[in-house]
């Protein structure tokens, strides 16, 4: 039943795929930039193992909050089809590799 009501909702309020792609690309850009930045910070602070990953998750949550405040003006459902998946959790693990890269790099540089 939920699927039928979803379809009806989409038929009444159609969704612009271009905008969805544009928003996803914007989020992905922000995530990849900030992931490297968090890696720099985690390496500089000398975080190791789990605290580093927890720092990354906390930082991603902060960035999501910033996007929520400044970009969606508190109405994420107007810009994302599923706000929980696309705004709060979108692309979080896509930036993990660049985070680890800069994390290890700056850890090695700072505390060599």
């Amino acid at each position: 039943m939920a699927g039928i009501s979803d379809e009806r909702e989409l038929a009444i309020h159609p969704i612009v795929m271009e905008s969805v792609q544009h928003n996803a690309k914007t989020i992905s850009n922000i995530r990849s930039l900030t992931a490297s930045l968090f890696g720099v910070v985690a390496g500089t602070l000398g975080l190791e193992s789990y605290p580093g990953f927890i720092f990354y998750l906390v930082g991603s949550l902060t960035v999501s909050l910033l996007i929520y405040l400044f970009r969606t003006q508190g109405k994420p459902s107007a810009y994302f089809h599923r706000p929980l998946a696309e705004l709060w959790g979108g692309e979080v693990f896509g930036g993990l590799m660049s985070f680890v890269l800069t994390w290890t790099l700056f850890y090695g540089l700072v505390r060599a």
């Binding site: 159609p14 612009v16 928003n23 922000i30 400044f70 810009y79 994302f80």
Partner: peptide, 13 residues
């Protein structure tokens, strides 16, 4: 970075 990113577009037609 968040302020400098391109503004989001509403998805509802």
């Amino acid at each position: 970075i968040v302020l400098g990113s391109s503004s989001l577009r509403p998805i509802q037609w």
